[in-house]
């Protein structure tokens, strides 16, 4: 693994024990410049992870707790008339931050969700005819409860698509949870050192774009998406945007592995995170059902026939 990234994974791992793979996925997602959706039950460490990610990258962080009465303006900011200057002054909302934790995104009304997703895509906010550019880098880490919980508005497929990855943390295993309980005292607001500063992040992001994807790998990706389109196993097929996302995420993964070319295992490592939420119908049970992306991996040959 790339040494700095290994360090970062280790650091975060002290907070969220036994979830190395997920942490690494989250880091690759950030390196790829994509937004991350963390989906799990309450109390699994979703918020902790997002905090940790912001700290590791040394970025400023804000948190928006989504509720059903949250309005877009509460999130984006408002124009307020300034009596002294006799003009409207823009007061930026909490979204103007490098890392935005959109907590429990599926509790908000669809209107607010759309506003957030639009900001995510455009990386800017339009208000009363004025465009305000969001800071760069701009990461949104959405968390959401599994869909069947009461009082939620499930994100439509088209909006789920905006998240590069969706990860699930899941329960820790026996040893991990025991180790967690054995930890002395977990201070609130404990900060992690910045491990990946802007310089390093920029260079790593450049590396991501330089990773070589051979014909064989592109063919493998195409076989995967084509299979998802032809088979009846999947509620939704993978779109061209999904195949782009897959390639991008895999490249980032390869960088965390300190490699400058892609191998099928990279694709397979990111496939569940990248493809699962795109394959699954939003109506379906979020958890519990067999993993569609694993099914896809089993059915598609990694080598050309």
């Amino acid at each position: 693994m790339q040494p700095q990234i290994q360090q970062a994974v280790k650091q975060i791992g002290q907070l969220i024990i036994g979830k190395q793979q997920e942490i690494r996925l989250a880091l690759s997602c950030m390196l790829a410049g994509g937004h991350l959706l963390i989906e799990d039950l309450p109390g699994m460490g979703k918020t902790t992870l997002s905090h940790a990610l912001a700290q590791i990258f040394g970025l400023d962080f804000s948190r928006i707790q989504f509720t059903s009465d949250l309005l877009p303006a509460d999130m984006l900011g408002v124009n307020i008339f300034d009596n002294q200057q006799q003009s409207f002054q823009f007061h930026p909302g909490p979204i103007f931050s490098q890392v935005v934790l959109a907590d429990e995104i599926n509790r908000a009304s669809p209107k607010t969700q759309s506003a957030l997703l639009e900001a995510m895509e455009e990386r800017q906010v339009s208000l009363d005819g004025q465009t305000h550019t969001l800071p760069s880098p701009f990461f949104v880490i959405g968390t959401q409860n599994p869909l069947h919980q009461a009082g939620t508005y499930p994100l439509p497929e088209s909006q789920l698509d905006r998240f590069l990855m969706r990860i699930q943390l899941g329960y820790p295993n026996w040893q991990a949870e025991k180790a967690m309980l054995q930890q002395p005292h977990h201070e609130r607001g404990q900060t992690l050192p910045t491990m990946i500063d802007n310089m390093l992040r920029a260079s790593l992001q450049k590396q991501v774009h330089d990773v070589h994807a051979s014909d064989a790998i592109l063919d493998y990706i195409l076989r995967l998406v084509t299979f998802s389109r032809e088979s009846e196993l999947f509620a939704n097929a993978l779109s061209p945007r999904a195949s782009k996302a897959l390639l991008l995420a895999a490249r980032a993964w390869a960088v965390t592995d300190d490699r400058d070319y892609l191998i099928p295992e990279d694709i397979q490592a990111v496939l569940p995170a990248v493809a699962e939420h795109r394959l699954r119908s939003s109506q379906a049970d979020g958890l519990g059902a067999a993993s569609l992306s694993h099914k896809l991996m089993e059915c598609v040959d990694t080598m050309a026939a």
């Binding site: 099928p264 397979q268 598609v300 080598m303």
Partner: peptide, 27 residues
């Protein structure tokens, strides 16, 4: 390369070791 690799796979298959379709080479 694929042809050589398939030959090697055939050798291994004789020993009763089979590659799953979805398995990548490193795996």
């Amino acid at each position: 390369p694929n042809w050589y690799y398939q030959k090697a796979l055939a050798q291994l298959a004789r020993q009763g070791i089979h590659r799953n379709k979805g398995q990548g080479p490193a795996d």
